[in-house]
Design a protein around this nucleic acid. Structure first.
Lengths: 333, 333
DNA sequence: TTGAAAGCGATACCAT
DNA sequence: ATGGTATCGCTTTCAA
């Protein structure tokens, strides 16, 4: 984990100074392009530095300059388009502030997440993340660091969390399906740790509000294949279902594919509505209708809250830390 | 760009020590969970730290521990699936080494890229990137830092570069099309700065090798819409074209969509072969045939070379720094 | 233009 | 169990 140990001793500014026959301040001046230095001296120093392969220690430099902020972004899987979008948004918001973002992809493994959090504290000024660790664990591992959680409902006071509120959006989606004549509407829920998911609660609530029984549910892994299998299961058990709402767009895309293989035309024979509003949804056939989240806003909010935590200016209140979802009709429903 | 200036003076370990009535070593012990400390003292220190909102300086800590490596990953656009895959692969390879990766998304803007490079030197130990800056600029901005370039053909000795060699893959693709009976094969090239692209050279070379004239070319922006428009143009001007090879998969997906709108069935009426081998290609309809790159390998190679540069163990040779592409047949051709 | 000395904020090593 | 002191590698401040 280190460059220490075996490797040759680090080349320091003093080595360069010695080699060039000047003091280290002069070296510093040469390297930082100050003008209070003779051209020839400068060149000599630069040559010596190059020769020795000298690179300034960012720690030493940072220690005295103290002018950089970096935040750790912890996500389960960068290849999951949802997290790609969140990450891109966070990167953008951070760049606007001149911050550096250290990205950690935990590969969906809880141990990796623990390891990451354990190591992160000494590397960044704050953490933004989609974490699955229990709160007391997070607390222990990030002691002292500002932490902004993404999409966690319950949380101790120590943390900030950006909540995702899809209630109205899901309601709009279900209403729309009902208005289009659908009565048997199923859901492809996430096969995660908390089941049924909150998104399922929204679904069930919306169904009830429409005077319908919550339809059949099938559990799907968070992947296209997962969605594919789940839809097949669902339709096998409940062939009368004419519309499905899915936990997210990835699963919905799997559903689209399964429907095609089953010979069901979307949206005529089966309407599909996803959740997340991924750009990806525009590319599939037919383009996916979805309950869309503003991921840019999500990322920006997370960074904004981090900034407030960092400067101890008043943090955003719980009510401001919400991203609402809204129905985005495309062609799958 | 800093937290310095206005904000209150930073809380240091000495403040905590004073407040808790102990020495700073004791504070250090309490915070780092050493066991050579009394339980009650520890608690008192922890409380004081919490009270004061103390957070250790990562620079000071890094300075004395010297056991972390972080590399900067500079890419033009994280939302471009190709770069998402490369980034994910690099992240993975870096994690395996215990490195930290600071990600910079320059939003495809050259000035941003310059700014990023300028600021990066004091933040990371090495740079891996897909850069569009001229080489002498890069050299100037990263003076001293190891730099590994991705997909740059020409380069000064100072840099390492991972080359992408699609010659054989493209040849296989064109051969396959020809064997399938195609004679008029067009290309949707990238509307970038160097035109025609190297990928076009491969295309032209393959056509010649098959005894055909290089077909008509249309230029496309790097986007789905770009591909869509480019295919429409191409077919309008050359309706006899029965197959197209595209600069990349994104453009190919646009072509797929345009073909559908034009009433041309893929692959019967029009065969399409992309380049890159994005996962995304599996999701579209029909699944995209493509000349695929191993992005995981690409990311791993970049990180491996960075490691060698960093430890001054023999760097990989030019011949080893290549990722070859190969034809991956799916259903669009 | 150059150099000497004083930090920056932590940890490690050695006393006690 | 606790404290003193040296040290990490650099920039800044002040003299010369």
């Amino acid at each position: 984990m280190a460059s220490s140990g075996t490797g040759p001793r680090r080349v320091t500014i003093d080595d360069v100074a010695r080699s060039a026959g000047v003091s280290r301040q002069t070296v510093s001046r040469a390297l930082n392009d100050k003008n209070e230095i003779g051209e020839s001296t400068k060149q000599r120093v630069l040559d010596a530095a190059l020769e020795l392969g000298y690179r300034p220690s960012r720690f030493a430099r940072g220690l005295v300059r103290q002018d950089t902020i970096s935040v750790g972004l912890v996500i389960p899987d960068l290849l999951n388009p949802f997290f790609t979008e969140v990450a891109a948004a966070a990167l953008d918001a951070a760049r606007a502030r001149g911050w550096h973002v250290v990205v950690y992809d935990t590969g969906d493994r809880v141990e990796e997440e623990r390891g990451t959090l354990a190591v992160i504290a000494s590397q960044v000024d704050a953490v933004v993340g989609y974490l699955s660790q229990p709160e007391d664990e997070i607390d222990k591992l990030t002691r002292g660091l500002p932490v902004v959680l993404i999409d966690r409902e319950h949380h101790a006071e120590r943390f900030s969390a950006i909540r995702i509120d899809g209630k109205e959006g899901v309601h709009a989606a279900i209403s729309y399906l009902v208005e289009s004549g659908h009565r048997r509407i199923g859901m492809l829920d996430h096969a995660g740790r908390s089941e049924p998911s909150i998104r399922h609660d929204w679904f069930a609530g919306a169904m009830t509000a429409c005077g319908l029984d919550a339809g059949p549910v099938s559990r799907a892994d968070q992947s296209v294949e997962g969605g594919e299998n789940a839809l097949k299961e669902l339709l096998a058990a409940h062939p009368d279902v004419t519309a499905v709402f899915t936990f997210n767009d990835i699963i919905a895309i799997g559903a689209l594919r399964a429907a095609r293989r089953l010979g069901r035309t979307v949206p005529q024979d089966l309407a599909v509505i996803g959740f997340d509003g991924l750009r990806l949804g525009e590319l599939v056939e037919p383009p996916l209708s979805t309950v869309a989240l503003d991921t840019r806003h999500l990322g920006a909010l997370a960074v904004e809250q981090t900034a407030r935590l960092l400067t101890r200016s008043g943090p955003l209140s719980r009510d401001e830390l919400v991203v609402r979802a809204e129905l985005r009709r495309r062609e799958s429903a």
